[in-house]
Amino acid sequence: MRKIFPPNELARDERFVRTKIEDRVFDPRNAAMMERDLGSAKLEPSRPAAADRARSLMHGIFVGEIQALEGAGRTCFDFDEDDAPFALKLDMARQCWDESRHVEISVKLGEWMGSEIGEFTESTFLYEAACADDPVLRLCGVNRALEGLAIDVFNAMKEFGDVAGDPVLEFCEDWMLADEVTHVKMGSDWLRRLTEKDPERRNRALEFQRTVDKIFSLGGFRGESDENPVHLARKFRRMAGFDEAEMDDLVEISKQAQADAEAMAAAAAEGGGAYGA
């Protein structure tokens, strides 16, 4: 069986439609959208299209869980015990079990919210971060960056359920959030252990994490201002091994990502409209 399985060969049925992050970044509507005063972008039940936005985010969580399962599974298999100690593989196996449950919970939550598998697109960037050839990079890119984002997203959905009075959503997100804190902590612990005597490798891994964090800030998706739909869940990140400096850095990365996206949208707009006149 081959190692480092390519993202384009992941098993999906006809319900799934792939999209690329660039499709969103270069959407010709972005520049005009940025000129609108849409107020707070935070996910709240009283905001416009709240149900659709929540369903879309729920579907994003669902496909993210599938890819997290696939990524953790590959890490169990792709490395020998010199690169990835047995105890690390055991942690990844436990994570597979968690992610499997999360997939099932997410499918049921989607149905509860009136959605279905494949209603929205899937981007495979999470899995792509799990294709790095160094297990420490995978732990930083997936467990610390993307599972860290999952902490922020689950916390946002949990708060949405709380404000909406939706007990099913609130409790399910809370349970999954607890697992995510564990997954991020696994990443933090193994990063420290595997790079204890190799600061250069640690720096390379943390730089990879910064890159993944920036891409997954999606032009302002996550941050700490009213313009960010998902806010940094500092309390839970602290529990998962993040220090304050790292979290402040993450807020800066998110601001940079937003500024970059605005600059790209402005540059695209200079070329005129995309269709018609």
């Binding site: 940025m34 609108r36 005063d37 849409l38 707070s40 709240e44 009283s46 416009p48 009075g165």
Partner: peptide
């Protein structure tokens, strides 16, 4: 029958969805 706290803000309306940013 609704025991939830009422939202402090109301949903955006059409005119707000179309409104330009103050700095734009």
């Amino acid at each position: 029958a609704d025991t939830r706290e009422r939202p402090k803000k109301t949903a955006l309306r059409k005119e707000q969805l179309r409104a330009p940013r103050p700095s734009a």
